[in-house]
Design a protein around this nucleic acid. Structure first.
Lengths: 207, 207
DNA sequence: GAGGATGGCTAACGATCGTTAGCCGAACGA
DNA sequence: TCGTTCGGCTAACGATCGTTAGCCATCCTC
């Protein structure tokens, strides 16, 4: 048997666990959570469905790990972007870039994280929705702040922040990592589009 | 029995069929296609799951009707917007407004139409994806046309047209018809945001 | 009033799927 | 070398669900 099994003296969360998570992620993103079977996940590792239960507790647990990891990372990066300070335009540009870059880099996590929220059982669903609300509110707050300082000329904080969020989320549905544009480039481009949308371009009424 | 049954002398596609379609639509949008059971759809009409089959062929047929109807209507409205002519900015503004207005007015159809495409069986899936490609290409063509005429100052046709499309699609996920903003208002606002994003604002370098 | 169609119903089939139970070979520690 | 643990496997359970079969009351037409 080509198994690498046997006694594993010491390790973190096992490699097998991560392999299963990766396989599940790709399947959840490609064909959806409830359409994915444990047998299919097992296939990706060359093992049977029931064998997965030596490493994980349930299918639902896989989804929870994926979605929680996604929201946690998104919030972490957003905080890191905000902590750098700068004026409102700088900060908004940075959290937009971070938003877009994540949705390109980790397009599967992002896609599943948005699409399968309703597949989460309570209380996880509510918990994740709360995190998402927190994440989204940062955009709205920043747009509002910029508008109060007359740096943005937009009619509604709410709608324009939703527009920025949604165009970033959309990236996770079409981004192709084998294409010619890097996540960083795309993030920079989109961040510029966002500022333009808010009427906040810097090099504008100068000529 | 409170049934309205009996012989129905003459009618188009029966009322019951539409009622079922409506119930299915709301459930597909709320909890997803594969999570929706025929019994749940029946519940909405006060009848049992198997009774639905007196009016419809299958659950899959319901999805096909919803998604086909959505793409057909979207293309119809887009064509109507384009046929009015005008310069590139006019046309782009109009198809963006139409895009957003539909995603607000028919948010359930739109949401299901985007989310459940992979739940369609072939050949319907491919057919719908082709229609969607056609719909999306109109945006890209218009952005390209405007850029060649130096009316838009955007770096990439592809990305900015995706951004416009995605921010419209996003509307179907959060729009609340009981809120204070009408689909028309939202469409007008978003169309303005889109043109701004492209650097195509009219009343700009005039002061 | 007879005949037929409509549109409900219950029962049940057949398939799928998440999960559990229980078995066993391989590898490691003492 | 012996015992333990790891991590596979097959078999099977239990639940769910789409769908079909077959029954029957109601109503319309003639």
């Amino acid at each position: 048997m080509p198994s690498a099994g046997g006694h594993r003296p010491n390790a973190g969360p096992s490699d097998r666990h991560h392999e299963i998570l990766d396989a599940a992620l790709e399947l959840f993103a490609t064909i959806g959570y409830s359409a994915t079977t444990m047998a299919q996940i097992g296939d990706r590792l060359g093992i049977r469905g029931p064998s997965l239960y030596k490493h994980i507790a349930s299918k639902q647990e896989l989804l929870v790990e994926i979605v929680t990891g996604m929201m946690t990372e998104l919030l972490r990066r957003q905080r890191a972007a905000l902590i750098l300070g700068g004026d409102v335009r700088d900060r908004l540009q940075r959290i937009t870039a971070v938003h877009v870059q994540y949705h390109a880099e980790q397009r599967y996590e992002a896609f599943v994280g948005h699409r399968e929220i309703d597949s989460l059982e309570e209380p996880n669903r509510t918990r994740i929705l709360d995190l998402r609300r927190e994440y989204e509110s940062r955009f709205r707050e920043l747009v509002q702040e910029g508008r109060e300082l007359n740096l943005f000329t937009t009619s509604s904080d709410r709608w324009s922040s939703y527009a920025i969020l949604d165009m970033g989320i959309g990236v996770s549905a079409w981004y192709n990592p084998a294409g010619s544009v890097s996540p960083e480039e795309l993030a920079a481009t989109y961040a510029r589009l966002a500022l333009r949308m808010l009427g906040a371009e810097r090099n504008e009424p100068e000529g």
